[in-house]
Structure formats: structure tokens, C-alpha cells
Nucleic acid binder design. Sequence first.
DNA 1: CGACATTACTTCGCTGGCGAAGTATTCGTC
DNA 2: GACGAATACTTCGCCAGCGAAGTAATGTCG
Lengths: 171, 171
Amino acid sequence: MPETDWTDRHVARWRSHWVDIHFDDEVEAVVTRISRLQRFLKGTIQTAVAEVGIQDFEYATLHSLMIRDTPGTASPTDLAEDLGVSGAGMTGRLDGLEKAGWVQRNPSPDDRRRVVVEITRSGAEIWRKAMALRGAQEEELVAVLSDRERAQLSRLLKKLTLWTEAPREVQ
Amino acid sequence: MPETDWTDRHVARWRSHWVDIHFDDEVEAVVTRISRLQRFLKGTIQTAVAEVGIQDFEYATLHSLMIRDTPGTASPTDLAEDLGVSGAGMTGRLDGLEKAGWVQRNPSPDDRRRVVVEITRSGAEIWRKAMALRGAQEEELVAVLSDRERAQLSRLLKKLTLWTEAPREVQ
DNA sequence: CGACATTACTTCGCTGGCGAAGTATTCGTC
DNA sequence: GACGAATACTTCGCCAGCGAAGTAATGTCG
């Protein structure tokens, strides 16, 4: 008897209760598993950042600062867009990060409307620590797949992301 | 030249900037793509529920009520656990849903501490409408894969979810 | 050059959600 | 069967984030 995961049980339940609603098992399974994996990953980040004494949204902001083309520096607007938060929300985040000494806000020399956010030494340090913990947990997860499977999964996921990222026609 | 997605560019950027940090490209790619797909799916739900005039967390609560073994009825605690919100948060959500007439709170006959949440006719109706819109968009996404690829992806994802759901040893 | 639109942030009022404390009920056990 | 622990919610005070309005600087174009 093959092992079942939460999603298998979910789909079976659905099948028996909602026979009248149009519903593709395989689609629902893929979508549900992606959601559940993301929930798990969110949990790993949560424990990783808690360990170094930082909050998840603070880590996310530092992370976004570090993974860009100009590592460690960006405008509040860029960060807000990357992280999917509003401008107002980013102002609040930066207030907190600045008070904690993890970033610094400087006026832009070219454009006096602009602000340049820069990560500090201690900000980069705490980010690295959280990164390491988080990375280790992610590797543990993906380690259940062989190299071949990992590449296969990556390829299939990329087919989906390419579609989501493609500019959509406006009807 | 093969097409690149956001994740490819992210990994390449990482490679060039952070050569000193331990980092597995394939792991990062898988994890990042899952996150980005989830973000996309969250967006599709957002537009679907907006169309029927309901908020995402309201939809999620109704959904959780409907997909369980006893469709349409549950305790606040069950719902809170399923949805990953606190008890206090669930009280707030139910207050809103009840005021909108989509659920009803009744005292449990067996245990006077308990509350039985039940979906109303209009609650079930609005849930179905949102479901249909959401389902259509998800099918559109997964349709970029062939049947064979879809099954393959589902199988690989299941390998991961099984691991995440397995009871972990306490060290 | 000057008026109007646009851009880049910040402030403000409000809302969803959290953890802790509170209330009521039921369970366990001596 | 009485008393302390556990369970099931709700209330309370607080915080992150949102949209809208506000402020200041820069573009645009007649």
C-alpha cells in the first residue's frame, strides 16, 4: 500500500463529498502540494530567524537588500516592490531596522526625493547567520530527492514559473 | 539560448556576488520556484475572491469549513489549526463571517464550552463562485504541462511533502 | 519660465492577527 | 464529590501592514 500525504487525503475527501463540482485531481494535487511546501518553508524560516533573534519580515527585508544586483543598497520603493508590501509598510519596516542598527537611511545625492537604504555591518552579520540556518534546513528537505529527481523537479517548476512570469495579453 | 526565469537570474546573481557563502544552486532554485509559484497562486485567489466580493481570509475560512470530513461544520479550534491562525484570530474572523451571514455559531449540545460553526446557504454559494474562478485559473497554469509531466511533478512534490509531514525525531 | 503632472517617500487612521489573560465548563484523581 | 488541571472559547492591548492623503522634489511642455 503506497503511503499517502495530506494532499492525497484531501483530494480523496473532495472526490467523495463534492462529486458535482468540476475538479481535476491532478491539478488540485499539484497546487495543494506547492501550498503545503511553502507553508513548511515558511516554518523553517521562522525557526531560523527566531534563533538569531530577528523577526521574519526583518529578515526578508535584509535578504531582499542582499540578493540584488547592488548588494546591500536599494531604495525603499525597490524593496517594497520586491517584497510585495506597500510603500507605507516599507517605511515602517525601515524605521524598525534603522532603530535596531541593521540598516541606515541616507539621502540620495542625485535626487533629493530619494532615500538610499544601506545595510550595516551588524545587519549583514545577522542576515548571514539566519541564512546559514535556513539554508541547512532547505537542503535537508531537498535531500530526499536524488540529483536526477532534483533536476527534473526544477525543470518542471521552471515550466510553470516561466508561464507565470510571461507578460499576459490583455483581452 | 534557453529562456531564463526570475529564479535563474536570482541564482546567477547570487553565484557572482556571494561566492564565499555555501550555497547549492539546485536547492535554491527549487525552493525559490516553489515560493514564487505560491506567490502567483495567492494572486489568483486574490483576484478570484475580489470578483465575488469577499476577502481572501474569509474565503480561506469558508474553504476550510467545506473541505473537511464533515463539510460545512467545524469548531473554531479546528478551523484555527487548519488555517494556521490563533484562536483569537479565529474569533475575529468568525465575528465578521457571522455578521455577513455566511456562517452561524451554535452552542454544542454535548459540551457547553464548545461552539459549532456552520456555513449558511449564502456562505456556501459565495464559496462556490470563488472556487470556480480560482479553479479555472489554476487549471490554466497547470495546463502548460503535459499529462505525463503533471503526474511526474505531482510525484516529486509528494516525495517532499511526505518528508515534511513525517513525525520528526526529537534530538 | 511657469503651471501641472509625476515620482518618492512619510504620516495617518484603520484593520487583521497575535499572545496573554479572563471566563466558563469539563476531566481526572485522591 | 471536591479541588486542581485541562479545554474551549472570548476579550484585551498591541503591532504590522494597507490605502489614502500629505509633503517635497523633479519632469514635461506649451
